[in-house]
Design a protein around this nucleic acid. Structure first.
Length: 710
RNA sequence: GGGCGGUUAGCUCAGUUGGUAGAGCGACUCAUUGACGUUGAGUAGGUCACAGGUUCGACUCCUGUAUCGCCCACCA
């Protein structure tokens, strides 16, 4: 072998030799690991690197143990995130959804996707990942489309899909509905306004005072609600209050959901813009009015404030109330305001037409089987169970263009408003239907405008990647997955969904072991992010210290569920340490192989006490590394093999052999070769390089048998 | 407001079933052409956040407090 072979050369050698490929036809028992598809954006970050390092070490370990190992890679189209990045890019050319057709826009989006994908892949593959690239999946490809339509169709047939007026969190900046899970809360100091509403039809003017933080929505009020038996206001039940802006009559109602001790115990009901109000309104059969539009501006419902944004409208509304003498008082009020996780914009609760899945039956089934999944750390079973127990329906439609378009086609003639109901004329299919509308005979089908939530496809990732709904050879052999890994923050969005969907569609848990790694944070405990500029890019570390060293550094943070704090300096320190370890290993090889003394070949059978001792220690190391790998404690496994090689083998044993160099040769070779095999899952490149220089059998250390205690 | 996690050497972190604490980096001392100075041999440094409790014995189990962080939540 060429001495100057680089990491990239070894990688090519492995890949060309087909060592990464799984073979469903082999007699070996399967071990399958599913790579979480990273989002199609920018450079892979440190979290990806850690995930991939963990996945790869386990894949290499299982392969050496003799399993037919599948590590399946893929990339997620990442709906909102990708569309956001792409939109900014288009804006530089003065292009947008307003001056491009959907087809033109998508064509450009795919071109951009191809560029990003290529760059992404380049960074990705230098990490030494022994993934089966022949099975790689991108979440918008045809295979996934087929699965997604099947998923949708099944829910439809089971009567679990519905569409209708529903309150959603609308982000005016992203221009789409976002889920509760995609919202953040920010503590903001605002004012709480106490406003007097005149009671209609009384001889002397009497008022009911309500407290609100959002006076700009008054025009959309449809009632005033008080808590039951309100000492001051109960007498007004059945009467009407006058809306100060629109002069319409507002019924005064009682509802136990109104908090007794907040504000005045009286609440203005604005079902179009508040979830609690929406629910109260629904139960009291109240109308739903909108005074804030999807652009975040006041609608025509309020003549006076029309066209203003929220902040301006609020100021003006307060001014007007003041003029009318209806503003009782305003007090400082600090509360958490929902903001969009991506745009950091305050979200507007709005009524919108969205598709939903009824989740209760899926949740019930998941709860019965979730115990079959082994979680690391263990407490995640409870965390997920608690969430699934409080499940709410899943809003699956997004007003985006980048994603799986909802496979619903409406008959233009007999169902022009795209409504949904069993008697309505619509059909489900991937492509434009060729059938005639059963109602009017028309063939003018129009597809639903929206796309599906990214997690609607990602949730099926464990099945779709193996060819579902087809009963493929791969599916039969590799499902359920043996191992899945995830960042903790997507445990609900993704992990809980996969468990529910997999049990629903296949009656099986999606994976046997579920590993949650911790979050790598900046020194102040905050997340690393591009915008804060506190990120560390794995690519930079690899360029400076090499892949093996970077991987070892990451394993030291791979204790299940434990966060780590670091900056570039700390990362460099640790990487440097492992780079030095690599140098140590090269010198050990030099000592054993290149400086092999005369007569060493005739030293079989001259084993001494030192040789026996180091072999005993090697055996202990084999046992510990193996068990730490099996319990997914990679931080302990790496520490163990590191300590053995450096401080037991090199510092002690090798020093002692110097007096009896020749007769120690067989032990030196055997112990070092075996230790390299134990280290291979973690430092794949250098172990291959050095293993090749020792007497060995077989083409690659990748194919070596996992060391056993002898 | 609820839930979860952290708090161990100057720094970043380990610590299987309870038996007076470990690593890497950093500091200090020594070794200088020995496989390797990207090295070796040593040394210093911790009342394991705090207060109770269980126990012969607690970093480890229980209760509470403080503090930092994360997640979740429809009090207008």
């Amino acid at each position: 072998m060429d001495k100057t072979k680089t990491e990239a050369d070894w990688y090519k050698f492995w890949e060309k030799s087909g060592f990464f490929k799984a073979d469903p036809k082999s007699d070996k028992k399967p071990y399958s690991l599913l790579m979480p598809p990273p989002n199609l954006t920018g450079d892979p970050h440190l979290g990806h690197a850690m995930q991939h390092a963990i996945l790869d070490s386990l894949a290499r370990f299982k392969r050496m143990q003799g399993y037919d190992t599948l590590l399946l890679p893929g990339v997620d189209h990442a709906g909102i995130q990708f569309e956001g990045t792409f939109t900014k890019l288009l804006a530089k050319e003065n292009l947008s959804k307003y001056n491009l057709s959907r087809e033109e826009w998508l064509k450009k989006a795919w071109q951009f996707r191809d560029d990003v994908y290529k760059a992404f892949h380049q960074t990705w593959s230098i990490f030494g990942i022994s993934a089966d690239w022949s099975r790689e999946v991108f979440t918008l490809e045809e295979k996934v489309q087929t699965g997604v339509v099947e998923e949708f169709q099944t829910f439809w047939d089971q009567d679990l899909l519905y569409k209708g007026a529903y309150i959603v969190q609308w982000c005016p900046k992203c221009g789409t509905a976002i889920e509760d899970l995609e919202m953040e809360y920010e503590e903001r100091k605002e004012k709480l306004y106490y406003i007097n509403y005149l009671i209609d039809g009384l001889p002397n003017p009497e008022y009911i005072t309500i407290a609100t933080a959002r006076p700009e929505t008054i025009a959309a009020d449809v009632a005033i609600a008080i808590y039951p038996k309100h000492p001051k206001y109960a007498k007004f039940i059945g009467k009407k209050a006058i809306n100060p802006f629109t002069q319409t009559e507002l019924p005064i109602i009682e509802d136990k959901r109104v908090e007794k001790d907040f504000g005045t115990g009286a609440l203005k009901i604005t079902p179009g813009h508040d979830l609690l109000d929406y629910e109260i309104g629904k139960d009291h059969n109240l109308a739903i009015l909108h005074v804030v539009g999807k652009d975040g501006k006041i609608t025509e419902l309020d003549d006076h404030l029309k066209g203003l944004n929220i902040i301006e409208a609020r100021e003006k509304a307060v001014g007007k109330l003041h003029e009318l003498g209806l503003l009782d008082k305003a007090e400082d009020y600090s509360h958490s305001v929902p903001i969009c996780e991506r745009s950091k914009n305050a979200v507007e609760p709005l009524i919108s037409e969205e598709w939903f899945i009824k989740m209760q039956p899926l949740a019930d089934k998941a709860l019965k089987h979730i115990k079959e999944v082994g979680f690391a750390p263990k407490n995640y079973q409870k965390i997920l169970t608690d969430w699934i127990e409080k499940i709410h329906d899943w809003s699956i439609s997004r007003s985006l263009w980048w994603g799986h378009r909802i496979p619903v086609w409406y008959c233009q003639k007999s169902n022009p408003h795209h409504s949904v109901g069993k008697n309505q004329d619509l059909t489900i299919s991937l492509n434009k239907p060729t059938i005639k509308c059963p109602n009017c005979g028309s063939t003018e089908w129009v597809q639903d405008d929206q796309v599906l939530d990214t997690w609607f496809s990602s949730g099926m990732w464990p099945m779709i990647t193996l060819g579902w709904p087809k009963e493929t050879e791969d599916f039969k052999k590799y499902f359920p997955w043996d191992f899945e890994i995830s960042a903790p923050e997507i445990r609900y969005l993704w992990i809980a969904r996969m468990i529910m969907l997999s049990l629903w569609f296949k009656d099986q848990i999606p994976f046997k072991d579920m590993f949650f790694h911790g979050t790598l944070r900046a020194m102040d405990g905050k997340k690393m992010s591009k915008s804060l500029g506190n990120g560390i890019f794995p690519k930079d570390l690899i360029d400076q210290w090499g892949t093996d060293s970077t991987r070892m550094f990451l394993y030291s943070y791979a204790a299940p569920g434990r966060d780590g704090r670091l900056n570039r300096q700390i990362a460099d320190e640790r990487c440097k340490n492992f780079r030095n370890f690599g140098t140590k290993l090269r010198n050990i090889e030099r000592f054993i192989v290149e400086l092999k003394p005369e007569g060493a070949d005739e030293s079989e059978g001259k084993e001494g006490l030192d040789d026996k001792n180091i072999k005993d220690e090697l055996n202990q190391t084999i046992t510990k590394v193996t068990s730490h790998l099996e319990s997914f404690n990679l931080h302990l496994a790496t520490e163990e093999i590191y300590d053995f090689l450096w401080h037991k083998f090199a510092d002690v044993y090798i020093e002692k052999t110097k007096d009896r160099r020749a007769e120690a040769q067989p032990t030196l070779e055997y112990v070092f070769k075996t230790a390299l095999e134990l280290l291979h899952p973690f430092m794949p490149f250098i172990t291959e390089e050095l293993w090749q220089k020792l007497p060995h059998q077989g083409q690659s250390i990748m194919l070596a048998e996992w060391p056993k205690v002898e």
